[in-house]
């Protein structure tokens, strides 16, 4: 870890102006990902701008019944918040499924969206990785990739995004709010992460120097009937090999509204719009759920060792939607 300057900022405009003045600077939130990456040598900032004490640590119900979540709200506070648990239970579950109690106390909402992939080649600075060192190659494609992407990847990178929280946010049409020296801006989560293409090192559409100030969740009554499920290689304290956030409104056996997002399958939380379209207005049956999952996963491109994710995600879609259907019937 090389030496760096440190500055704590107390208001947003100061934060963006300090960062804007130093191209070698990075924002420091909880540090749970950035400090780790600095230790492994992946990140080598010259200055850290500590934004943890910015007044962005509130969760508020918007007049229309949505939520405004500040960027420095910790993962723990987000998951424990009664309005999050009441209105978007899958979001609370997703956050609780991530990391550990200690890390959730430190990690912030803004930082969670910006966390980097956990691909083992990305964190090994001695070897190649297109995301870390553009043009150096992707050893995962020929190497260890059993937990890599099946959707939206490219020949340049097959890494997945590790966030659980982001999967639920994707299902609920979250909008990311940010601030730059030019003023505030917004990005729907759907547009927040860039396609991988041949530029896997470019991960988000945030303007240069932008600070995430928060997330807006539009009102979504369907989200009150939502659930998150995570599959991993040990029962806790591990990243997903597949996860799903689902919300379902069934009326008289027909899907009135459905939200589906998949995790650990792509370079971003994967909103399953194809499946949602296939389901809406149709019967809430296991057969329909499976057909919708197949429609979504038709675009999947598996590598030799991650093909299991196709049946895994299919099973998760069917299982979770079936559970939600049964719950609605009770």
């Amino acid at each position: 870890m090389k030496e760096f300057g440190y500055q704590r900022v107390l208001d947003v405009s100061e934060a963006v102006s300090v960062l804007g003045a130093d191209p070698d600077a990075r924002f420091l939130g909880g540090g749970t990902n950035l400090v780790d990456l600095m230790k492994t040598g992946v990140e080598r900032p010259g200055r850290l701008v500590d934004v943890r004490e910015l007044p962005l640590d509130h969760v508020e119900v918007t007049p229309d019944g949505g939520l405004r979540i500040g960027a420095t709200v910790t993962n723990s506070d987000l998951a424990a918040h009664p309005e999050v648990r009441r209105r978007y239970p899958a979001l609370a579950q997703a956050v609780l499924a991530g990391a550990s109690g200690q890390l959730r106390n430190m990690a912030t909402v803004g930082g969670n969206l910006l966390q980097r992939t956990r691909c083992g080649y990305f964190t090994d600075v001695a070897g190649p990785c297109n995301k870390r060192l553009p043009g150096s190659g992707c050893p995962a494609i020929e190497g260890e990739h059993h937990n890599h992407a099946i959707l939206g990847a490219s020949a340049h990178c097959v890494a997945t995004h590790p966030s659980d929280m982001g999967v639920a946010l994707a299902a609920f049409d979250a909008v990311v709010r940010y601030e730059t020296t030019d003023g505030p801006g917004e990005l729907p989560l759907a547009d927040f992460y860039l396609p991988v293409g041949d530029t896997p090192h470019l991960e988000t559409a945030l303007p240069s120097g932008a600070l995430i100030t928060g997330i807006t969740l539009p009102p979504a009554p369907v989200a009150a009937h939502s659930r998150y499920r995570k599959v991993r290689e040990r029962a806790s304290y591990a990243f997903a090999i597949g996860s799903i956030a689902a919300a379902l409104d069934v009326r008289d056996g027909t899907v009135h509204e459905v939200r589906l997002a998949l995790g650990a399958v792509a370079s971003r939380p994967w909103r399953a719009l194809t499946a949602e379209r296939a389901l809406t207005g149709g019967p809430a049956t296991a057969e329909a759920f499976a057909a919708a999952a197949d429609a979504e996963l038709a675009a999947a491109e598996a590598l030799p060792h991650n093909g299991y994710k196709v049946p895994l995600m299919r099973n998760l879609v069917v299982a979770l939607l079936t559970e939600l259907t049964e719950e609605a019937a009770r």
Partner: peptide, 25 residues
């Protein structure tokens, strides 16, 4: 522990890449 044939080294040699049982297991 998974060894990468190209580099000859381990992939993700750390406690997030090499799992042993956590309390919940």
């Amino acid at each position: 522990a998974v060894r990468d044939r190209a580099s000859g080294g381990l992939v993700a040699p750390d406690l997030a890449g090499y799992h042993f049982a956590a309390n919940a297991d």
